[in-house]
Structures are given as C-alpha cells and as structure tokens.
C-alpha cells in the first residue's frame, strides 16, 4: 500500500495547544507549500485547529472524517480526525497545564493507533510540553520512550537531532551520568552505529560519515584518564567499520563537534546526553528537527518548544516544523527508520 503511493501520508498533530503548535500547524497547511511532499491527515481537536488558524491569521479548510481510511486527499480540505478533546474554554494558552498534557498524550496515542494500521507512515507533531504531559500522567523520561511504549516496541530506538545536513545521535540519553556509564558497552555502541547508519542511508545519504565521540577527557589520553576508549569504543568502531559502516573515532569530544560543523562528518555519535547537547544547542540545533529513529512509525518534531513568550501573536516561525515534515517524508520514501524484519542488516 505504502509503496505504490507517490507521496507518503503523514499525520499532523498540533502539539500542546497552550503553545504555538496549533498556529504552526495551521500555517503549514494553509501555505500549501508542502502539498507535493506528503498528504496530511490532522489528528487532534478541530477547535484547536480553528484557534490555530485564527492565531496565524489564515483560513483553513478541514473536513472531519470518522476513520483514517475515509481520508480523501484529492480535495482542497485537509482531512481531520476530530478527537473533540479540547472544548473551547477547557484550557488557556500561554502556560503549561497538566490536564492539557494529559489530553495531548491521548491525542498522540490516537495518532499512534492510526499509524499502527498502516494508514499513515509518519507522525509529525508540533511542540509538546513535556512536564505538563508528565504531570498529566504520561510519566516517561521523554516522548521517545512514550512512543516506543505505545507501539509495543521492544528493540532499539534513539532520539536523533538534525540540523541541515548534520544528524547527531547518542548512545545513552535521559539517564543519570552514572547509569549512562553502565549502559555504554561495545554492543550498545554497535547498535547505535547501525541505527545511525541506517537512518542516514534512509534519508538518502550514501555511506554516511559517522564520527564517534570519546567518553573521557582527551579521549582518555592513551588510557591515563579512563580505558573505555581502548577497551570498548575503539573495538566497536573497528567492528562496525569492518561491517561496512563509514565510522571513525573515538575523537576527543571537545573538538569533534567543531569538525562536524565544519563539514568533516555527517553525524557524531555521542556517548551521553550533555556531550552531544551542549555543542548542538550552541550551534542552533533548537532550530532543527528531533526524530525518533528505529520505530515502525516515523516521528519528527521541531526541536524548539512551546514558545509561551510569543504564543497567540501570529509570529511563530513554522520553519522547523516544515523541516520536520520534509524529513519525515524523506525517510518515508525509503521505508522509514525501523530495522528490516529479518534483523539481518548489512549496510
């Protein structure tokens, strides 16, 4: 079904309605600029979308449908599965609200149910408010783990951060530094390299150049400040290089990102959260896209947040959300980011 279509079908979820998500979603749909990239099915509340259109100052044509298979993409109105879970007056814009977070989680869950039927290949969601969701009962360390849970996903998946041609990934993420140290093993590095390589290839990058960051200062300086580079990371890099992945390292992490930003690599694999996030956030990756890689459904979202300081003013920039949609469409063309069913993967 998905292979015969020229364009993928992507679900658009307007995100947390207390923030700029509905405005961004309305802007993306009203501009029509991504019409040739994908067909869109909105999953959310119709009132929220109308509020977004009004915030954006655009006119939006929507038609409500009862189920995803009723979607007609050959008319001017965008199909919406109206969950009717945000009655006007049931929330206020500009501040996080756990009762909103709870309903945002329900909306995402519904979109995931639709994706499980194969009716959409990806879910592009506008910014969430993670704490509101957590406080509203969706108690996951991050949304990626929520998605994996809702998809009953047992295997490997990772957050990736994309800006321009650079795709940053990491071996460990939202865990304490101590726990991260325990989770960094030859096997977990190999897994992360395979996943990173696969995602970049599916995005159309041939033989992606992946730099692997060291764990310790100065890359351990020959074992003086830690042996993980010698005992774990270098063997993992060698093993994956032998499998055909274009990976190199380990590189001292205080300079590897500068090299990547200068164009020497397509991707840097960090060992832990802050190692990757400090450099990428300084580099402006908040203007980029976050993807959840490795799941059966593609998930992309702008890296920026709900932007309460400008909500409702009509000035929110949809650029990052548009990039998130472009990226999901690009990955969908090549079958998404999930591992092949055989599990026997060679680049």
């Amino acid at each position: 079904m998905t292979m015969t279509r020229e364009k993928p079908i992507l679900a658009l979820v307007p995100g947390d309605p207390t923030g700029i998500g509905p405005e961004l979603t309305a802007k993306v749909l009203a501009s029509g600029q991504l019409r040739d990239v994908a067909d869109f099915l909105v999953v959310g509340d119709r009132h929220v979308m109308e509020m977004g259109a009004s915030q954006a100052g655009v006119t939006l044509a929507l038609h409500s449908i009862g189920a995803a298979d009723q979607a007609n993409f050959h008319q001017n109105a965008t199909p919406i599965i109206d969950l009717a879970n945000f009655a006007p007056g049931s929330f206020a814009i500009g501040a996080p609200d756990p009762s909103v977070g709870k309903r945002v989680g329900q909306t995402l869950s519904h979109a995931i149910d639709i994706a499980r039927t194969g009716a959409v290949q990806g879910i592009c969601f506008a910014p969430l408010h993670k704490k509101a969701m957590f406080d509203g009962g969706w108690q996951f360390p991050d949304e990626h783990q929520l998605f994996a849970h809702l998809l009953d996903h047992k295997g490997l998946f990772r957050e990736m951060n994309v800006l321009g041609n650079q795709w940053m990934s990491r071996v460990t993420s939202h865990v304490s530094l101590r726990q991260a140290l325990d989770l960094i093993t030859e096997a977990s590095i190999c897994d992360a390299l395979r996943l990173t390589d696969r995602v970049l290839r599916r995005a159309g990058i041939e033989a992606p150049r992946i730099a692997v960051a060291a764990l310790n200062p100065h890359g351990g300086e020959g074992g003086l400040f830690g042996r993980e580079e010698i005992d774990i990371i270098a063997p993992a890099v060698a093993k994956m290089a032998a499998e055909g992945i274009n990976c190199t390292g380990p590189f001292p992490s205080d300079t590897v990102y500068i090299k990547a930003f200068a164009g020497a690599f397509d991707s840097v694999l960090a060992m832990y959260h802050d190692q990757g996030q400090i450099a990428t956030k300084l580099r402006g990756f908040n203007k980029g896209v976050t993807i959840t890689a490795g799941l059966s459904t593609i998930f992309t979202t702008p890296a920026h947040g709900t932007a309460y300081d400008i909500v409702g003013q009509g000035i929110a920039d949809p650029g990052a959300f548009e990039n998130a949609i472009q990226l999901a469409a690009r990955l969908a063309k090549n079958g998404g980011t999930a591992a092949p069913a055989s599990g026997d993967e060679r680049p």
Binding site: S253, D254, T255, Y257, I258, D274, Q275, I278, L282, R283
Partner: peptide, 15 residues
C-alpha cells in the same frame, strides 16, 4: 562538573 562539560562549550564558541 567535569572536563568536557566545560571544554565543549568554550571550544565550540572559540576554538
């Protein structure tokens, strides 16, 4: 708290 937490930002800003 540790070397790279300090060195990554300063080298990214001014190599």
């Amino acid at each position: 708290m540790y070397h790279d937490q300090a060195l990554i930002p300063i080298k990214t800003l001014d190599f």
